[in-house]
């Protein structure tokens, strides 16, 4: 009873929730294992191998979590906007579900980036929060995530929620660079001399390696979690269809 128009395109074959559901189920554990292994290697590199920083001491090690989280939070928003655009252009239901599944993870990374930034800022800057351009735009990005999640949850009709969320994600994506540059502009006008992240001391190769591996771990984690979340979203959306009924029976999840 899926209502997807049948098309010859290979891409659209997996755009049908029914075909994507088992694929996501197979892929998610792979990425989860990958994430765990990469995170283990990355953390080992960052906490035991990477040398202590000459100026900042041990506290700098938070960047191994902070920087990948900040990268990921921005990147996830772009991916959300991409799926939103796909959903609007091709009217594929799965695209909106992907965007929705990504939002909480993006917000989580955004929050982690802010939190670890504050922990780093306290000993380095002497304050948990300074109105630094990066911190401020990260905070605004968190608000954009909250707005997206709040809007899609507030709309009861799931399809309307998908489409309204897609429009919002695109409007937000257009505004993200504007926000970033305006905050940077404002920041240079208001506080000339503060410790800037851009002036980080040149990094040792092990530091860079640790950071990249942590970034890859964040990627794998995001993909795994998004796939699992999209699976439950699919079940929820299509719960009245025959194939979901059969699937629930197979899992013994239906009395």
């Amino acid at each position: 009873m899926t209502m997807q128009p049948s098309r010859g395109f290979h891409f659209f074959h997996f755009a049908a929730p029914q075909t994507f559901y088992p694929l996501a189920g197979r892929l998610a554990p792979v990425f989860a294992v990958l994430a765990a292994v990469l995170a283990a290697i990355g953390l080992w590199l960052s906490f035991f191998v990477a040398p202590t920083d000459a100026t900042q001491g041990e506290v700098y090690r938070v960047i191994f979590i902070h920087v990948p989280a900040a990268w990921m939070s921005m990147f996830v928003y772009l991916v959300m906007a991409f799926w939103s655009a796909m959903g609007i252009i091709f009217n594929t239901r799965l695209s909106a579900l992907m965007a929705r599944a990504l939002a909480p993870t993006g917000a989580m990374f955004c929050f982690v980036a802010l939190w670890t930034g504050a922990l780093w800022g306290r000993p380095t800057w002497g304050a948990y929060w300074v109105w630094d351009a990066r911190l401020t735009s990260q905070l605004l990005l968190l608000f954009l995530y909250f707005g997206y999640i709040a809007l899609t949850e507030a709309i009861e009709d799931p399809r309307r929620g998908d489409r309204a969320g897609a429009i919002l994600a695109l409007v937000g994506a257009v505004n993200v660079p504007v926000i970033y540059f305006s905050v940077k502009w404002w920041n240079t006008l208001h506080q000339g001399a503060s410790v800037s992240l851009t002036k980080a001391p040149s990094m040792a190769t092990t530091m860079l390696g640790g950071m990249l591996i942590m970034a890859l771990a964040a990627w794998a984690y995001t993909i795994a979690v998004a796939l699992w979340r999209v699976r439950s979203l699919i079940l929820e959306r299509e719960r009245h269809t025959d194939w979901v009924g059969a699937e629930l029976d197979r899992q013994g999840a239906r009395p």
Binding site: M3, E156, D157, P158, R159, R237, R239, H240
Partner: peptide, 13 residues
């Protein structure tokens, strides 16, 4: 034509 309202399929075909 098929019509979905909320998550309920009202009619199809």
């Amino acid at each position: 034509l098929a019509c979905l309202r909320g998550d309920r399929l009202l009619f199809r075909g």
